[in-house]
Design a protein around this nucleic acid. Structure first.
Lengths: 234, 234
DNA sequence: GGATTGATCGTGACACTGTCAAGCGATCGG
DNA sequence: CCGATCGCTTGACAGTGTCACGATCAATCC
């Protein structure tokens, strides 16, 4: 055990320090994160390698290992960055909108907007197999982004359908969005095989949100043999 | 260009030829596929390597390359196998059920059943970045599984809501299921962070299907060129 | 029956990767 | 001014994908 864990870099600040060449490099961690995103964007996650990242950043091949310890560490940092931008985008998307339904639509659009503008980040954010599973910052940051959606669903429930169970509903929205970005490529190939015109991502989002909003408005926790029913406070 | 593409192995038969040691090995392709899922199940997709697969199958390190050409090729074969079992499972799940809603619920349960019983396959099936993107067999097999869902949604529309647009609705269901298996781990960590009891996969599926069924029943194709604000009539 | 052919698989080699120990240089506290 | 520590490089080792080539066996042809 020699180094492994430099002083805990200031990640939340996203400082992008303009001070070029402070002591040795400036701040390598941020530069390496940027290079990692660059590599993923051009060569895909499959072509990702610490050495390629180091090469593109102009440092030696072991430099990434010093700051992030592991490939998982660097990818986790990228994922954290992605969740930060997602949270900011969603928070900005719902800002100034009053009606919960409109907020939900805005969230859907913001989600695909982030997914299309930062594909490299999104290729990593939900890939728990290549991420530091028990990274605290990653968990809290992901939760922060999710909570925007959950509070919106809660508002929708409060105004339109008090009997709606908020948590499952919010998770359905989240899952549908996530599944959409994952499956969109496959949908396109299916469209091609069936000879139909391909539907764009935004079109899919529009249809999905409309379908789900209708579902959330009419849902009532009826029959099923689900004993742990929570009283859905009203 | 020497070999690369042996005569096109009979994959659909799933023969599992009992004839041990036919001429050289028996049929290495199937054995290698089995070893591949074994490796993925034990070491995860991250620990997957052609050499490890070869080692576990008791053949030389280049043998997998001969039959599948590439790591992508072997993983694609695994994915094809997964889609076959998924299609069979869904077809068997809806068999004998008349009501489309019940069929949809059965499909949801069958989906998570496959996801939990064959996690190694599911870890690969939707990971287009590690798959042969333009593999014909993969595309058709995936389409076959999807079409069971789509026809069920079509039946549901015909009986309960003729104004429902079938294709987007079916894709929503598919996306939600896919997103659920992808995000379930993250949901659990969120539950842990919030101190609530964790919801199992089956519980999630139950809630999701119920929510979506309500949505599919009430959906009406309103204005396609959606104006920014809908009056939210109830 | 013996030789040929082609499919099946093994061997060896190369470039590449992750990871670690050790080294070097600049910076800072004393 | 000098050691200590941080930042990063250098060098090395095992493991991997991929290719060319050699070896082995089944089936076929004459």
């Amino acid at each position: 055990m020699s180094r492994r864990e430099p002083p805990a870099q200031s990640s939340t600040s996203t400082s992008t320090s303009t001070s070029t060449s402070a002591y040795h490099h400036g701040d390598l961690p941020n530069a390496l994160r940027a290079s990692a995103v660059d590599v993923i964007r051009s060569h895909g996650l499959h072509g990702f390698s610490l050495r390629e990242v180091a090469r593109r950043a102009g440092v030696s091949h072991a430099a990434p290992g010093y700051h992030f310890g592991d490939a998982r560490g660097l990818l986790t940092a990228v994922a954290v960055e992605g969740f930060e931008t997602l949270r900011d985008a969603l928070a900005l998307a719902v800002e100034g909108i009053d009606d919960p339904i409109d907020r939900l639509v805005a969230i859907g659009r913001g989600y695909v907007r982030v997914a299309t503008e930062h594909p490299a980040h999104c290729e990593v954010m939900f890939r728990d197999d290549v991420l530091e599973a028990d990274d605290e910052q990653l968990a809290t940051e992901g939760l922060g982004a999710y909570e925007i959606l959950e509070t919106t669903v809660a508002q929708l429930a409060a105004r339109y359908n008090p009997r709606l169970e908020v948590q499952p509903a919010a998770r359905l929205c989240w899952s549908a969005m996530q599944g959409l970005v994952a499956l969109h490529a496959k949908f396109s190939t299916i469209d091609a095989l069936q000879g139909r015109p391909t539907m764009s991502l935004d079109e899919h989002v529009e249809r999905f949100t409309r379908l789900m909003v209708d579902g959330l408005l009419h849902e009532e926790p009826t029959q099923p043999a689900r004993p742990p029913r929570r009283p859905t406070r009203r």
